[in-house]
Write a protein that binds this DNA or RNA. Structure first.
Lengths: 200, 200
DNA sequence: AGCATTTTGTTGTCTAAACAACAAAATTTC
DNA sequence: GAAATTTTGTTGTTTAGACAACAAAATGCT
């Protein structure tokens, strides 16, 4: 489940967008640390109290921004109703590499070491959600297999994510594409324990 | 009084902007006639009932769009606190010419004959407001002169406006600037009956 | 012309957002 | 490091906007 289509009150959708956009703009002007909730609310032409009705604090807002931009990248690249396949897995891995490289090495993001953990947790969790969904549909419906699906999704999500972080922090001698292919092989091996991967 | 700075509820300002923008976009896609209130509300992501809370109908919305775009053109060109002067009068006249030529001859606006009267009334009235304000401050405060100020503002506003319409419907052999200068002379003559115009 | 469909205004109810005010916490500043 | 200033959460009250439902008017169709 990459995107959740809820029929929410238009006001809610609008306010959330305004806040996210304002935050995004501010991030390109000054450091995360120096951005206050007041700044964000003011820029978004939204009352400060309204901010707190939507987000716990500015960290929560950042978190939602990361998760949603990741989700958007995926919906752009994956077919509408994606399932477990060799092709889709490759897209997924490549997307994670690109996202991580944007966050870490990108010039657009200040990326203080303080909020790297937040980025990491968000990306890994979103990754897990996609993988879990794929596996759930690829494995025969069996209560006993549920646990195995969870474990497999967890392991693979960390495998992909960890590789991406390590690569982004390294000298990056290899291209994203090459890295993605190597990770693919590892993932395939782990995956083959549970389900066979269609070449599509 | 070119612009009115009211401290309105941010929601009101936002909704009005959304509706005006939606209308503007739709005007570049289809004819005024074929645009329904439903279309506008939908495009603006605003409930249809909310539309009616702000505007009588789509004609009223069009009217506000014209008036406000005129006002914006003026605030861009005139100094912050403008007063009656030769320079400012020239700017005012030229702006009217440009606005009218946009509306009538411009390729951007379909300009059906049906709603020309609406354009005309809106522009003329806005023009009157500016002139009245200028004259009120230029003429010595005297209750007896109030009537004279009103008459003068009316006459001059029609003089400028009428010239602009006539020119826009003609073959336009002369440039806007030349026309503006000629109108200036006429206006100066009428104005000199009431107040002397500073050359600035 | 006559019938189907769309659009229009309007209404009442419910919810989200605005706003002001507050004490507590965190920053700055000197 | 103490005082001044800013920011933070939170709350109660008020208002704007969402939504559904409606009859009446306008449009479109053949």
């Amino acid at each position: 489940m990459v995107t959740e289509i809820k029929s929410v009150d238009p006001r809610v959708k609008r306010t959330r967008q305004l806040l996210q956009q304002a935050f995004f703009d501010l991030m390109n002007e000054k450091s995360f640390r120096s951005i206050s909730v007041q700044d964000i609310a003011e820029r978004a032409t939204v009352n400060r109290a309204t901010f707190y009705a939507h987000f716990e604090d500015k960290y929560a807002l950042l978190d939602s921004c990361i998760r949603e931009s990741f989700q958007q990248l995926l919906t752009e690249r994956l077919p509408a109703l994606s399932s477990l396949s060799s092709t889709n897995m490759h897209i997924l891995i490549l997307t994670v590499f690109e996202l991580i490289s944007q966050i870490h090495g990108g010039t657009c993001s200040p990326s203080h070491k303080q909020l790297d953990p937040l980025f990491e947790e968000a990306v890994q969790q979103e990754l897990y959600k996609v993988l879990y969904d794929w596996l759930k549909h690829a494995v025969p419906v069996d209560a006993n297999r549920t646990e195995q699906v969870e474990v497999t999704a967890t392991a693979i999500s960390w495998a992909i994510f960890g590789s991406a972080v390590r690569w982004s922090q390294s000298s990056r001698t290899l291209h994203k594409e090459e890295m993605a292919n190597r990770v693919m092989q590892v993932v395939n091996g782990g995956l083959s324990q549970v389900v066979s991967l269609a070449a599509e």
